[in-house]
Every structure is written in structure tokens, then in C-alpha cells.
Design a protein around this nucleic acid. Structure first.
Length: 568
RNA sequence: UACCCCAUGGUGUAAUGGUAGCACAACAGGUUUUGGUCCUGUUAGUCUUGGUUCGAAUCCAGGUGGGGUAGCCA
């Protein structure tokens, strides 16, 4: 197993508890020293950042051992809610994250025949029986959290009768839901999972892979461990809610005497200012509270991708959050940090003006144009330079001009001098206002000796602002995304309200008259750019067209001026 | 009011019987042609009560708090 990057998360010294278990097993030669994990999604929804944690754990651990392997296996035992569309999107997302299952793509449905044989074996051993109770009756017989259950009247059928009935279930002789195959364990167990759990149900639903070949489908608990066993999985890593299922996981493997992988549970990822449950994400999509699964505000991998997040940043994040059994809430700022850290390293720098304010250089000749050299990435000299057109009329950011500026405001203001990045020093000489008193134009004079931005006499100019040539600029729509929810824990609500009441009404701001440096007309999809002094942006993969520039803000730059300004 | 799991600065995580460390966040300063990056510093923690021990975040017992479990879902 290989990651196609070198940033594998685990360091040699500090292993999380899962990696410690794996390392300990390898050290004592358990499983002949093999390390084999799997990522087992159900194809009934889109992957999100929480899945990325699991993916990076499973594929990551495998990648840390010379002969380590990780399978991609779809847990497709419930045809009523699974679809091929999800299979494809999940494969795409895992690949995008940078992991490779090589030739080990599996489906639980690949094993249906073998699973059936295992069930037959259990019946022969007296460890499973066909039960005629209805769903409601089964529930009633199960008991409650505080009271033991009662044994089904069908619990003591002979193996012969059970075998016959189970075969006839498969043959389609019985109605949906009329019978089940159940494990014969202990109706009084304090662990409800052990109260004779259902292992096969009758369900006439067309399966996305097996079609109508089956009308009985195995349940998760029975299927999962046996699939792990068949594939020779050594460490079956899953989330905490399966902890109570482990005794059952072990029970099936012991009853059948097959290879016994070890199930290890860890805490799933929770992030502030978002929700992670499939149900809630689906609700946001269905109720059109977001623009589909790939809405850049969604924590889905397709949403993060569309937003401009890099797989490297996501992997780096997954490497820092740790793996424990503690039910934590990770601060979204840690993700934003990982994102900025990666983007700072790789994002090409460009200039773009989001809220344009015209700036006219009065002493710059009307017809004159020139090209100025700009650095593409100060963090990476190999990325080279580019030429920027410059002329008499420019656009600057509205926020970079203030008529009555406080002392600590280092930008443009009447009488003050600033540097136009990579261009010239300019001094504001006048402003033009409309009838409403709004500043609509700034007038300046420039110092012709300061080409490139350096003062000939060495005078200090504190402020540097970005700009674009009015004559050459490309017009674009820019979508400023913010956190989807307005509070850290959207699920924490007053009675009678739910997470939807905590949606951030300002999570999207659309700016339609942005002006970008001309080179951005050829912006590449899949590249995230840094708009200098503003943040990271990428071309929208769904709404941009050759004649229509649409950019999404991935994340803003840290903004210490905003902090100062907010304090005032 | 059953059973299971968990508890270290604001957040996330190390320390596996021997100096409580790292990252994020926050705050302060330095460098800077991005108020970015980078660098330096500051604030701040072992849930509680007992016990074992020369020594406890770590082991034991009780308490408190949080999470999970009653699908023919996964």
C-alpha cells in the first residue's frame, strides 16, 4: 500500500493506541507479521471529512508497513438503500485523497454464497434458527435495557427443520419479513446485541450488483466480521458505536472456527461549526438548505474539493487530530490551519480585487501601458514570475481606502502614500464622490522613480495594497464562503429546535463585479490560488465556463488587521 | 434507572510508576514589497475522594460528569 505523497501522518515515536496495538502484534509475530486493514463504507451516501479520518487511519497504517495492505470493501448488504452512484463517488473520493487499493476492490455481496454456507453451518451446529416472529414481536421479545428478553417460541426447532426453512427462505417461498434467521445466543444478555440477533432477513429488493439473485440478505453483524475473515484482515478498525457489537463479531468467528481478525474501535471525528451525520447532511441537501452534496460549505469530500481544499491538507489534518476513544470535538481552526499551511506552500499568488474602487493616477500618461514583474510564490522560487499590465486607471480594494483613517491604518487615505504591490508608490491627492457622498474614485500621483515598489530615497512606506489594471482586468463572480453554522455545536439547541435553526445566514456572500488580473482568464480547474492579502480561491468546478469566471473562497488569509479593527 | 466505553490547558493530543510535553487557538513582540508567511515570548491542564507506593496523569476502589446501546440499518 502506498500513499502518493510523502506526508504519512504517523511519526515513529508517538503512536496512537490503534497503531500501538498493530505494532505490538507485528512485534510478537501475530498473523505471521501481516498487517491488513480495510475501509468498509456502505454505498448509501457521500464520504465526508469524518470518513477521511477512517480512510487515513486504515490506509495509513497499511502504508507504514512494508507488506501492509488495505482493501476497499463496500458493505452492501441492504439493497433498499444502496446505489451504484455512491460506489463510484466513494471510489473517486478515496483516490482523490491519495490512496490506492490496487487490485483489492471488494463487495460484501461478492461473498453472499459463502455467507449463506456459513449460516448453514451455524444452523447445523445448533447456533442459529429460523424464527417466525414478526418484527414487532421480535422487538417485544427482546426486552429492554433494564429487563431481559424472552426466548422465541421457535428457538428450539431441529437443525433439519431449520435447514429446510432457511433454504426455502432463500427459494423465495415466504413473504418479506415473515421469517428471519437468528443467532442462538442469550436472550438474557445485558448486551442487547447478543439477544439472538437477526442474521438474515427476507427482502425482495433488487441489489445494485446481484440483481434479483437473492431475496434474503445478511445483516451487518454477521457479514462484517466474516468478510474481514475471508479477506484475511488482521485489524478491523471501526468507530465507537460498534463497541457493543464486538462480542458478536467475535462470537460468529469463534462459532465458525475461521480466521479471527481483531476489531478495534476509535472515536469518530466531530468538528465545530458543522454536522457530520449522513442523515443531517442528507436533510440539508433534500431541503435545499445547501446547493447539493458538493456545496462548498458541506464537510463532504466532494464539497471540500469544490471549495479548493487539497487532499494533502486533509491528510495532514487527519494526521494531527489523533486517534483515541475519547468523544471529542475538534476545533475547525485546526483544519483551517492545515489548509493554510499547505496552500501557503503550493498556491500560486495572484491579485484580484473583490470590491473594486477606481484609482486614477493623474500624472501617469493616458495612453501609456507597461508590464511589471510579479513573483508567483515567495515560498517557492521555482514557480517563477509573471508580467502584470499597468496603466493610468486601476482598481483597488474598497477596504484599502479610508477617508478618515486612524493612525494604525497603513493603507490609502488622503495625503498618504502606499505601495501598489510590484508597481509604484502612490499618494492620494483627492477623492471623487457621488451625490450620496460615497467615494467612487480615488485620485493619486505616482512616483515614477519607484518602479517595482522601491522608494529611490529609501523612505519607508508601511502599506502595500493590491490592484488590477482597469483596462485589462477580467470580471468575475466570487463566492465568499463562511462556516455553515453560526455556533460551535449545531446540535446543541433549545427544546423544540434543531440543527437547522443554527444555520449561519451569512455562510455565502456572492460578489459579482470582482476584477482579477488578466492571467486568471486562463485559471485552471483544480488549482487553488492565493489572491494576495485576501485568501485562497479556486475556480468553481460546476458553474464556471470559458466565458464565465466563478471563484470560490477556500479559506481567508489570517487577518490581524481585522482583529485590530474589530476591537475599535 | 441495566450494561459498555471515556475523562490531561479554551480545543485536540503526548507522557505506559520517575522533570506534565507538542499542536491549534488567544495574547505580546520581531522580520516583512501580502496587516500573509516566518521567528521569539506569554497565558493556561492531570474531574473528585480515598487507597497502594519512596514516588501516581498512569495502578486499585467509590463518586461525579460525558458518550453509546432496546433496526428484520450500517
Amino acid at each position: 500500500m502506498r500513499s502518493n505523497s510523502s506526508d504519512s501522518s504517523a511519526t515513529a515515536e508517538k503512536l496512537d493506541f490503534v497503531r500501538q496495538i498493530v505494532a505490538g502484534d507485528v512485534a510478537v509475530g501475530k498473523n505471521d507479521g501481516r498487517v491488513h486493514t480495510r475501509f468498509p463504507p456502505e454505498p448509501n451516501g457521500y464520504l465526508h471529512i469524518g470518513h477521511a479520518k477512517s480512510i487515513c487511519l486504515n490506509f495509513g497504517i497499511a502504508s507504514e508497513y512494508p507488506r501492509g495492505l488495505c482493501n476497499l470493501r463496500f458493505d452492501d448488504t441492504n439493497p433498499s438503500r444502496e446505489e451504484m452512484e455512491y460506489v463510484e463517488s466513494i471510489k473517486e473520493d478515496v483516490k482523490w485523497l491519495g490512496w490506492d487499493w490496487e487490485d483489492r476492490l471488494y463487495f460484501a455481496s461478492d461473498y453472499f454464497e459463502q455467507l449463506f454456507e456459513y449460516a448453514v453451518q451455524l444452523i447445523r451446529q445448533g447456533a442459529a434458527y429460523v424464527c417466525d416472529l414478526t418484527a414487532e414481536e421480535t422487538r417485544a421479545y427482546r426486552g429492554t435495557l433494564t429487563e431481559p428478553g424472552r426466548e422465541s417460541p421457535w428457538r428450539n426447532r431441529s437443525a433439519e427443520e431449520n435447514l429446510d426453512l432457511f433454504q426455502r427462505m432463500r427459494n423465495g417461498e415466504f413473504a418479506d419479513g415473515s421469517r428471519t434467521l437468528r443467532a442462538r445466543i442469550d436472550m438474557a444478555s445485558p448486551n442487547l446485541n447478543l439477544r439472538d440477533p437477526v442474521i438474515y432477513r427476507i427482502m425482495r429488493a433488487s441489489h445494485h450488483r446481484t440483481g434479483d439473485a437473492w431475496c434474503i440478505y445478511p445483516m451487518y453483524d454477521f457479514t462484517h466480521g466474516l468478510c474481514d475473515s475471508i479477506e484475511g484482515i488482521t485489524h478491523s478498525i471501526c468507530t465507537l458505536e460498534f463497541e457493543h457489537h464486538r462480542p458478536l463479531y467475535d462470537w460468529f468467528l469463534e462459532q465458525l472456527g475461521v480466521f479471527h481478525p481483531q476489531q478495534i474501535e476509535f472515536a469518530r471525528l466531530n468538528l465545530t461549526y458543522t454536522v457530520m451525520s449522513k442523515r443531517k447532511l442528507l436533510q440539508l441537501v433534500r431541503e435545499r438548505l445547501v446547493d447539493g452534496w458538493s456545496d462548498p460549505r458541506m464537510p463532504t469530500l466532494c464539497g471540500l474539493r469544490r471549495r479548493g481544499c487539497t487532499p494533502r491538507a486533509i491528510r495532514s489534518f487527519c494526521g494531527r487530530i489523533g486517534v483515541t476513544k475519547y468523544n471529542s470535538m475538534t476545533d475547525i481552526t485546526l483544519f483551517e490551519h492545515a489548509l493554510r499551511e499547505d496552500l501557503n506552500q503550493c498556491a500560486p499568488r495572484v491579485m484580484g480585487v473583490l470590491r473594486p474602487l477606481k484609482l486614477v493616477i493623474e500624472n501617469y500618461p493616458e495612453e501609456q501601458e507597461e508590464e511589471l514583474t510579479a513573483i508567483n510564490n515567495p515560498e517557492d522560487e521555482a514557480m517563477g514570475t509573471r508580467q502584470l499590465p499597468f496603466c493610468r486607471e486601476l482598481y483597488i480594494e474598497r477596504d484599502d481606502f479610508l477617508e478618515d483613517a486612524p493612525k494604525k491604518f497603513f493603507r490609502l487615505s488622503p495625503g498618504r502614500e502606499v505601495r501598489l504591490r510590484y508597481a509604484y508608490l502612490v499618494t492620494c491627492t483627492a477623492v471623487v464622490k457621488d451625490q450620496a457622498g460615497e467615494v467612487v474614485e480615488v485620485r493619486c500621483k505616482y512616483d515614477p522613480e519607484s518602479r517595482g515598489g522601491n522608494a529611490p530615497d529609501g523612505r519607508r512606506v508601511k502599506g502595500t495594497i493590491h490592484w488590477v489594471s482597469a483596462r485589462h482586468a477580467a470580471t468575475a463572480e466570487v463566492r465568499l464562503y463562511d462556516r455553515l453554522f453560526k455556533c460551535e455545536d449545531p446540535d446543541r439547541t433549545e427544546p423544540g429546535r434543531d440543527f437547522r435553526d443554527n444555520l449561519n445566514p451569512n455562510s455565502l456572500e456572492v460578489l459579482r463585479e470582482c476584477r482579477l488580473e488578466p492571467g486568471l482568464r486562463e485559471a485552471k480547474a483544480g488549482t487553488t490560488y492565493q489572491f494576495e492579502r485576501l485568501g485562497y480561491f479556486c475556480l468553481d468546478s460546476e458553474d464556471a465556463a470559458p466565458d464565465r469566471l466563478v471563484f470560490n473562497r477556500t479559506v481567508g488569509l489570517r487577518d490581524s488587521w481585522a482583529k485590530i479593527a474589530n476591537k475599535r
